[in-house]
Design a protein around this nucleic acid. Sequence first.
DNA 1: TGACCTATGTAGACATTGTCAACATTTATT
DNA 2: AATAAATGTTGACAATGTCTACATAGGTCA
Lengths: 218, 218
Amino acid sequence: MASTSDHSKEHSNRSSIKKPKYHHGDLRRALIQAALQLIAERGVEALTLREVAQQVGVSRMAPYRHFADKAALLAAVAEEGFRALKAQLLQAAGHLEPVERLQAIGVAYVDYAVTHAAHYRVMFGTGRADPQSFPALFQVAAETFDVLVQTLVAGQQNGTIRATEPKQQAQMAWSLVHGLSMLAIDGHLTAVGCGSAAELAVEATRSLAEGLRRQDGT
Amino acid sequence: MASTSDHSKEHSNRSSIKKPKYHHGDLRRALIQAALQLIAERGVEALTLREVAQQVGVSRMAPYRHFADKAALLAAVAEEGFRALKAQLLQAAGHLEPVERLQAIGVAYVDYAVTHAAHYRVMFGTGRADPQSFPALFQVAAETFDVLVQTLVAGQQNGTIRATEPKQQAQMAWSLVHGLSMLAIDGHLTAVGCGSAAELAVEATRSLAEGLRRQDGT
DNA sequence: TGACCTATGTAGACATTGTCAACATTTATT
DNA sequence: AATAAATGTTGACAATGTCTACATAGGTCA
């Protein structure tokens, strides 16, 4: 079967038909994608390194050439998630004014979390590990957080948002949407049966924005 | 070696020196306690059913007489955590007026979470499981949530809290403190270096209470 | 071109772990 | 006292993460 693979290396990752070469080409990316799919299907708990490898079509030890261990792969998956989340937040922000942008970001955040529930769980499931272990992960998480901070700073410069420490405001806002997302994912909100997570997100971010909005006094 | 254990059964659980009896007495409780300790020491990920059994001094299959599987034990641990949390919230509530009580509850909540970080993680780590599997867990979680709701209802009757749907208000409040707790536990807040979780909790609950407080308009 | 080095992928082996079955012992019930 | 129901034990097994040693591909340089 090696006779048909002579002219296959003209481009390594542009051909749509994958040939079983000894060297995969971009195994790292493929592993992350496969892990992501399996996690979405059956949750993180059920994720198996061996199955990820099999899904990609490599032997069970191949992933270890790209990730130190299972935790490292999960960290990479989480990293990927933060990148996507950050992108979605930036897109939602659009050209809105700070206060409206804040609300839009909040709703988009919760939307991302509940839409990619399993993935979102991974993003915050690796958290107990020391930040030193996965600097890239905490880096992109910080960047995502920064989207919030920047919006608040803009609002303060704009004069539409209360002039207290913006980082602290951002931490509160983040706490609100993160908590809302987690509770929604875990089914702790539906149990009370009051409204969908999306509706609550709209309401919560409205309330938050109102609280942060500059009023006559300060 | 069985010759020395004749008169050992005078009382089963009141003696301070444990004798290796065939029947443990209250194995279920002991298993939960041991699991709790091990989790606090090395995290949930590192928890092993076999080690829990060994810690209690019982064979590896003994726990299965009291818990269907590992997940069931974890659910029991989580349940225990919710009970303790609920108790702490009720104690913090004291005889304060609704608005102050709300703040006190919020701060106590975050305090519990960061103090019992590993345990708190377990409480919300079993969440992806369907509520049907562990009804007692969701029951006590709901009771904990109810402490919040009741406070808000009291505030509405009192006229000190805005008269919107109290459950929704409670969901927002819960989201805030839960998100704050989780981010603090995961080290996502210290990374930004702005203040301790406790300080932020004080600030956040103050802001929340202010937002919910009844104002001239509504 | 061919020798060699490094990156990458593979197969074997092993300790750990959750859990099923079958057996033992203790306690409760008749 | 006899028997059933709880409760605890040991043996076995498949799945999993990961170590070690080996194989192969691609690039470098003489």
